Amino acid sequence: MKVIEHLERANNPLISYEIIPPKRGGSAEQMLGVVEELMPYEPPFIDVTSHSAEVSYKQMPDGAWQRCVKRKRPGTLGLCAAIEARFGIDTVPHLLCRGFTREETEDALIELNYLGIDNVLAIRGDDKGYDKQIPNERSQNEYAVDLVRQVRAMNHGEYLEDLMEAAPTDFCIGVGGYPEKHFEAPNLAWDIMHLKKKVDAGAHYVVTQMFFDNEKYFDFVDRCREVGIDVPIIPGIKIITNKRHLRSLPRYFHTEIPEDLAAEVEAADPEHVDDVGVEWALRQTEELMSAGVPCAHFYIMSSAKTVKRIVEPLREMA
C-alpha cells in the first residue's frame, strides 16, 4: 500500500520508523530483529535509508595511504524486500541522486516494481567526498527534483529509452523538507520554493528532517501552505540517547537543539541521558499529534529500545 493511502485511511495520527541497513559484511537479521520488536505497534510503513559510495583511507604496511571507495551500507533494496516478505509491512526505500546514474536508478525502480514495493523517497543524498565519474553515454540526476521527475516519468510509462509498450510503474513519491532550512539554502523562503518545485514535479508527500522545537515545524507547515504546497507534511522525530548527540546532530543534520534540552542532557548522568531524550520526544510527539499531524516519523536507525518507551503511551493516547 502507498504511504498516502495509509495516511488517508487512518483515523488517528500514524507512527512510522526509519532504519539503516547493516554495515557491509553484517547480517540483515539484526535489523529484521529491530522490525520484529516494532511489530506489536503495527507500523504502517518503514523507511530504509540508502548510502552511496564514499572515500576512506587506510595505511599500507609501507606507511603509504591508500584511497578506498566503497559503499559501507549496501542492501537497501534487499532489506526492503525481506521486511515486506517476512512481516507484510510496507517499506519506503530511499533513492539517491549522488553516487548513482539515472540508468542505475531506472534499474533499481524496475527491481522495486517487480518486488511490489509501492513507495520511494527521492533525495539528493549527502556529499561523501566521492565524485562518481559518469560515462559519456550515461547521465545523473543533479537534484532531488530531477529524481522525482524520473520516477514520475516511469509512472507514465516513460523510460530513459523510447521503449515500445513500456509498462508504467505506480510509485508513491516522498521527498524531504527542512523546517530549519537546508544548510545550503540562503533562507527558508528560498528553500520552501524549491520544495514546492519537488511537489509540483510529482511528489506525493513530504517528511521533514529531524527537529526538536515544534514551533519551527508549525511555522514551516504554515509557510508551505501559503505557497501552495498541499501534500501531507510528516514531522521527523529523533530521540537523543547520549551526550555526543549534542554535537553530532547539529554537525551532520544541521538542526538546532533547544537550550533547555541541551542543558538537561548535559547535566544528566550518562546512563540517564536517554531518559531525558525519551521525555522530550514524548512531549514533542504528543503536542504534534494533538495538533493533527498525519504521522510521526521516528529516526531510530538501528535500535527500537527507546522508541518503544514512547510508542506505548502514545498508543494509549490514540
Score class of each variant (00 low, 15 high):
Ile15Asp: 01
Ser16Met: 00
Tyr17Gln: 06
Tyr17Ala: 07
Ile20Phe: 15
Pro22Thr: 09
Lys23Trp: 04
Gly25Tyr: 01
Gln30Gly: 08
Met31Leu: 14
Leu32Phe: 00
Glu36Ile: 03
Glu37Ile: 02
Glu37Leu: 08
Leu38His: 02
Leu38Gln: 03
Met39Ser: 06
Pro43Thr: 00
Asp47Ile: 00
Ser50Leu: 01
Glu54Asn: 14
Gln59Leu: 07
Gln59Thr: 15
Asp62Pro: 14
Gly63Gln: 05
Ala64Leu: 10
Ala64Val: 05
Arg67Val: 11
Cys68Met: 14
Lys72His: 03
Leu79Ile: 07
Ile83Trp: 04
Glu84Thr: 14
Thr91Asn: 07
Pro93Lys: 04
Pro93Trp: 04
His94Glu: 00
His94Trp: 00
Leu95Glu: 03
Leu96Lys: 00
Phe100Glu: 02
Phe100Lys: 13
Thr101Trp: 02
Thr101Ile: 02
Glu103Leu: 09
Glu103Lys: 11
Glu104Cys: 08
Glu106His: 12
Ile110Cys: 11
Glu111Val: 04
Asn113Leu: 01
Tyr114Gln: 09
Leu115Met: 13
Val120Asn: 01
Leu121Glu: 01
Leu121Ile: 11
Ile123Thr: 03
Ile123Tyr: 01
Asp126Glu: 12
Asp126Pro: 12
Asp127Phe: 12
Lys128Asp: 03
Gln133Gly: 05
Asn136Glu: 15
Glu137Cys: 13
Ala144Arg: 11
Val145Met: 09
Val145Thr: 12
Asp146Gln: 02
Asp146Gly: 02
Asp146Cys: 02
Val148Tyr: 09
Val151Lys: 06
Asn155Gln: 10
Glu158Val: 11
Leu160Thr: 10
Glu161Val: 02
Glu161Phe: 00
